[in-house]
Simulated assay, not measured.
Amino acid sequence: MNASLINTEILPFNATAYHNGKFVDVSEATLKGKWSVVFFYPADFTFVCPTELGDLADNYAKFQKLDVEIYAVSTDTHFTHKAWHDTSETIGKLQFPMIGDPTGAVTRNFGVMIESKGLAERGTFVMDPDGKIQIIEVNAGGVGRNAAELLRKIKAAQYVRNHPGEVCPAKWEEGEKTLAPSLDLVGKI
């Protein structure tokens, strides 16, 4: 990633996803109108990836309660996603769309393509309802992500969007005090 994607609008794309037993078309327009997580992972039928996707599946109701949709993306095809969903107990729990990106177009749009391998980095992107990226996290291939931490960050992003003039400090949890940046706070935190 050369330039920051924070507060930029997601780039146009068209893809096919496997979702709830069907193949469905997905585009950047699909992601707008509600909070969305685009969750890139290297490949189906691997090792860390199913643990991450299983963690998201176990917490999916909490994301839905926040009006957040999750889109898992790898450079596999939507057919491969279906096969993995049908053969893995962990992946069989997924209720969110799994976008196939065999051309790498979506992965490149978000700047997480490992060109030498044709695979995605472990990138997490959270978009607000306007389709603007509010959170980016990219992990090394061997480092899995945590759905609970992602939920905490989304709650903070939603709070800040709904409360102009306030910000959430480190480790902020829902219901805790926020900060209202001002000259009076400079050097006092």
Rank of each mutant, 00 (worst) to 15 (best):
D76P: 11
A83H: 08
I114N: 13
G104I: 10
E52K: 10
I70L: 13
R122D: 02
A61P: 13
G54M: 02
T87S: 15
S88T: 12
N59S: 14
N59H: 15
T77N: 09
P102V: 01
Y60P: 04
T87I: 08
I70H: 06
T103I: 01
T80C: 12
F63G: 07
V112P: 01
R108H: 00
G123Q: 01
V73Y: 02
S88K: 04
G118H: 04
L53S: 07
S116K: 12
E89N: 10
E89W: 00
W84F: 14
M113I: 13
Y71I: 10
L53T: 08
I70Y: 08
T51H: 07
T103F: 04
G111E: 02
Q95W: 00
T103Q: 11
I114S: 07
L53N: 11
D86P: 13
V126N: 07
A83D: 13
T51F: 03
T77Y: 06
T51L: 08
N109R: 00
I91G: 00
A57T: 08
Y60V: 10
T103P: 14
T87F: 01
K62Y: 03
D76S: 05
A120H: 01
L119Q: 08
R108N: 09
Y60C: 07
V68Q: 06
N59G: 03
R122G: 04
D67P: 11
E52G: 11
S74K: 02
Y60L: 14
A57G: 10
H78Y: 15
A83I: 06
A57R: 12
T51R: 10
Q95K: 15
D55E: 09
S116L: 03
H85D: 03
E115W: 03
K82D: 02
T87R: 06
T90D: 11
A83V: 11
Q64L: 14
H81A: 11
C49G: 08
N59M: 08
I70W: 06
L119D: 00
D86C: 12
E115N: 09
D86R: 10
E115C: 01
D86M: 10
G123L: 00
T80E: 08
L119A: 02
G118E: 04
L94C: 14
D101P: 13
Q95R: 14
K65C: 02
L56F: 15
L56R: 06
V73R: 05
N109W: 00
A61T: 13
